[in-house]
């Protein structure tokens, strides 16, 4: 009798515990690499941006520009199209690229379209409402010499519990005046995602 009751109670407890709260929070350093689902994550975004910009800034185009113009090139990060099969926050990736550009000190990044419009609106507002000695002037923006743009693609191969995710990021830097492509970079990431068929 006791054995049967214990057995039934155990089953009940297992089921009841399945519905209970299981949240546990642990703070991590933002540079820590944690792969949970195998999908594109913050580490991929940061790593790809750093490595590609590193490649971009050691390329010959930057020396050519410096020699020709005698000044650091002004670069605008345009669009990065997500052509993958994941919802990738491309804005985060763009921010990572801009950060890498600024930290290098080799180029002068300028604001992209959305922020530019916001700042212009602010300047227009200043011209009507700000104290005259603090008004920022119109027509003094730094025009970009180059635009960086690109896309992220994925190829997925899957069989049973085994999955290969292949990410390819392509970035192109083009001269805004001449439309000449001065640099093309590619970064590939390959991930294996394994799922067990059974667990306890």
């Amino acid at each position: 009798m006791k054995k049967v009751l214990s057995c039934l109670m155990l089953i009940g407890i297992i089921v009841v515990s399945g519905c209970g709260p299981t949240t546990q929070v642990t703070r991590l350093d933002s540079d820590t690499t944690v792969d949970l689902s195998g999908k594109w994550n913050d580490t991929d975004s940061r790593m790809v941006a750093d490595q590609m910009i590193d490649d971009c800034l050691t390329h010959i185009w930057i020396n050519n520009h410096n020699q020709e113009k005698g000044a650091k090139p002004a670069v605008i990060v345009g669009f990065v199209r997500n052509k993958s099969n994941e919802h990738i926050a491309t804005q985060t990736f763009i921010s990572d690229i801009e950060r890498a550009f600024i930290n290098s000190g080799k180029v002068r990044p300028v604001e992209g379209k959305d922020v530019r419009d916001e700042i212009r609106a602010e300047r227009a507002d200043q011209s009507e409402n700000a104290a005259i000695e603090t008004i920022k002037r119109m027509g003094r923006e730094l025009g970009a010499d180059y635009m960086l743009y690109g896309q992220i693609n994925t190829i997925e191969d899957r069989e049973g519990g085994r999955q290969i995710m292949f990410y390819q990021t392509d970035l192109t830097l083009s001269n805004i005046e001449s439309l000449e492509k001065v640099w093309i970079g590619t970064k590939k990431i390959k991930k294996f995602i394994g799922r067990k068929k059974l667990k306890l």
């Binding site: 009751l5 039934l8 109670m9 009940g12 009841v16 399945g18």
Partner: peptide
């Protein structure tokens, strides 16, 4: 005591 096991089974019936 006899009713206890059945009460414990209730969550199974309704699940989450």
């Amino acid at each position: 005591t006899k009713l206890l096991p059945f009460l414990l089974f209730v969550p199974i019936l309704f699940g989450c």
